[in-house]
Nucleic acid binder design. Structure first.
Length: 556
RNA sequence: GCGGAUAUGGUGAAGUGGUUAUCACCUGAGGUUUCCAACCUCAUGUCGUGGGUUCGAUUCCCGCUAUCCGCACCA
């Protein structure tokens, strides 16, 4: 098992930089915190992890991939709650000019200062006059929202609309709901996935790839009918996993048992946790360094019903890399409310319901002229009245007294067949921090060992994600061996989803070592014999074993 | 954002108020070599950035930027 240490971390980051896997971005200009490049090796690694993720979730069979803009209008993120949630309220000390977080200043005067609005904070500060932590003065400027989202504008000049770079990919899936719903022939459950960049203007990015200002995310929004009991087969996951639950603490159990016992509160959440574990294993995360931690009730967003983080142990300790949340109907409802658009699914009843309608409505021809602008409100109220109401009836609408006479209303009595109903689907959302996962799979696959007394390092990456599939090496670049090797290399590069590299410099052992260091699973060596019989040596990274195969039989 | 530490080739390190800044590994070229970082010759490439002190600054001082560690923050 890996022994994580600061020294090993330093050697690993050094190697990743030297070999062009991940490196600080814009370094020749002095760099920028929280921004990283995937280099000539890392670019492909990232792409493959992404592709593996897409394939993995698409294999559920009812999931489609979409791609939405990163530039997002203000109103979208206002509706989603990000404008509020991603803000810190700051206020400046008039004495020394130091900014302080308004909610921190009034912490002792309010049990949950963080949740207060700007106005509430302003008045609390006014009432209590907390001293400035830097200069002890008690005179404060206006409370202002400092947003952790990147501001931008759509359009130039005064006509530009305010917008943000998206802090997550999820909102695009919600705003596209009707299109996805139609694509799936209006039948739940289904999901939409999206991979792409997200942006958060973090106050202080730390720990390399762990907290970035621009990062790769991958999210699934899975829409379900809350009244349909999901039927997931947990029998394929028989291994115990480490769960840290809110009530039971640290336990080892299977996903199926945890769902049955109610530790995982929703079967689909449990199913996606298991699905997530499979994905992480596929791309090279060591399952021994994986655990799932349930959010405490007070840590969870108010609308969430259950939320589990997949945490991975690496050189920076346990880091949350995936969040799997049951978000209820929060997101779709929020966009519905903000836009007035219907973001619902239709649920057909098993049998049509006969509904007796017995009540009142207004007679528009009479009530309209009588109540004028209040007619709408009157209608609303009258339609809510019980069948045995009598008229005339006095109503109080916003302080105005209104007399509803019997001529203003009509009795409504009929029976209707109702075949189903519209409802807001619930959402289960697995959200992945791809960069954090890439970091950890590198951390887990980085092996420091010894080879004939010398220290030796390799990346034992799964073939699925290794940035280079195969390196072609002429034993010597002469007598036509170089030409043949080049030909094989070009041929392999031309194959679907195969990437080969050619390396002819240095001794053969050095070239094997170079390939191992970046995790190339296979090397092909062209020697004199190859020129005669068309066979080459195929060497495995992990076993070091060599087999002789015909060029025509290469397994790529 | 606060406090502390740091910044020298691609990587890791050494060093200095003064001529051409040192070493190892890496990288490239040539030679040698019939399968696991071998060897020989040669070569490329560095004092984060801006200011100040000074005859002269990579070295001393200050600002900035970045990195690391605490605190704070955190889907």
């Amino acid at each position: 098992m890996e022994e994580f240490s600061d020294e090993r971390l330093a050697r690993l980051t050094g190697m990743l930089k030297r070999r062009g896997v991940i490196l600080p971005a814009f370094e020749i200009h002095g760099g920028a915190a929280g921004l990283y490049d995937f280099g000539p090796v890392g670019g492909r690694l990232r792409n493959r992890v992404n592709q593996t993720w897409v394939d993995h979730w698409q294999s559920l069979g009812n999931v489609v991939e979409i791609s939405c803009p990163t530039v997002t209008p203000y109103s979208v993120l206002e509706a989603s709650g990000h404008v509020g949630e991603f803000s810190d309220f700051l206020t400046e000390c008039k004495g020394c000019g130091a900014p302080s977080r308004a909610d921190h200043l009034v912490e002792e005067f309010h049990p949950n200062a963080e949740s207060l609005s700007r106005d509430e904070l302003t008045s609390l500060i006014k009432t209590h006059n907390p001293p400035c932590p830097s200069c002890s003065d008690s005179s404060w400027g206006p409370v202002e929202a400092q947003n952790l989202m990147f501001n931008t504008k759509i359009g130039a000049g005064a006509s530009g609309r305010q917008a943000f770079l998206r802090p997550e990919t999820a909102q695009g899936m919600f705003t596209s709901f009707t299109s996805i719903y139609r694509h799936f022939r209006e039948r739940l459950p289904f999901g939409a996935i999206q991979t792409g960049k997200g942006y958060r203007n973090e106050i202080s990015p730390r720990q390399g790839m762990i907290r970035l200002r621009e990062f790769n995310m991958a999210e699934l929004e899975y829409f379900i009918d809350p009244e349909v009991e999901p039927n997931h087969d947990f029998s394929i996951w028989t291994d115990n996993v480490m769960l840290i639950s809110e009530e039971s603490g640290e336990i080892k159990t299977t996903f199926g048992e945890a769902v049955t016992a109610g530790i995982i509160r929703h079967p689909t959440v449990g199913y996606f946790m298991a699905w997530t574990m499979d994905f992480l294993g596929k791309v090279g995360i060591n399952p021994k360094h994986l655990r799932f931690r349930q959010h405490e009730s007070d840590e969870m967003a108010h609308y969430a019903q259950d939320c589990w983080d997949a945490e991975i142990l690496g050189s920076y300790g346990w880091v949350e890399c995936v969040g799997i949340a049951h978000r209820g109907c929060y997101d779709l409802s929020a966009h519905e409310e903000a836009t007035g658009q219907k973001l619902r699914a239709w649920r057909t009843f098993p049998e049509p319901k006969l509904v007796e309608i017995d009540g009142w409505t207004i007679d528009g021809a009479k009530a309209g002229p009588a109540f004028r602008s209040l007619a709408g409100r009157v209608k609303e109220i009258v339609e809510g009245l019980p069948a045995d109401s009598t008229f005339p009836l006095s109503l109080d609408i916003d302080g105005q007294s209104v007399e509803v006479l019997s001529e203003h209303v009509k009795r409504v009595q009929r029976s209707e067949n109702v075949n189903g109903e519209w409802f807001v689907p619930h959402v289960v959302e697995p959200a992945f921090g791809i960069d954090r996962i890439i970091w950890h799979l590198l951390d887990h696959c980085y092996v420091e060992t010894e080879k004939s007394g010398e220290s030796y390092t390799l990346l034992s990456l799964p073939e699925l994600v290794s940035p280079v599939d195969v390196t072609v090496l002429p034993l010597f670049e002469k007598d036509g061996m170089g030409d043949l090797a080049q030909k094989i290399h070009r041929d392999l590069c031309g194959r679907r989803n195969v990437f080969s590299s050619y390396d002819a410099s240095g001794s053969i052992g050095r070239r094997y070592a170079r390939a191992d260091e970046i995790g190339v699973p296979w090397c092909i060596t062209v020697d004199h014999e190859s020129l005669v019989d068309g066979s080459v040596t195929l060497r495995s990274r992990d076993s070091g074993e060599q087999t002789r195969v015909l060029i025509s039989d290469l397994p790529f």
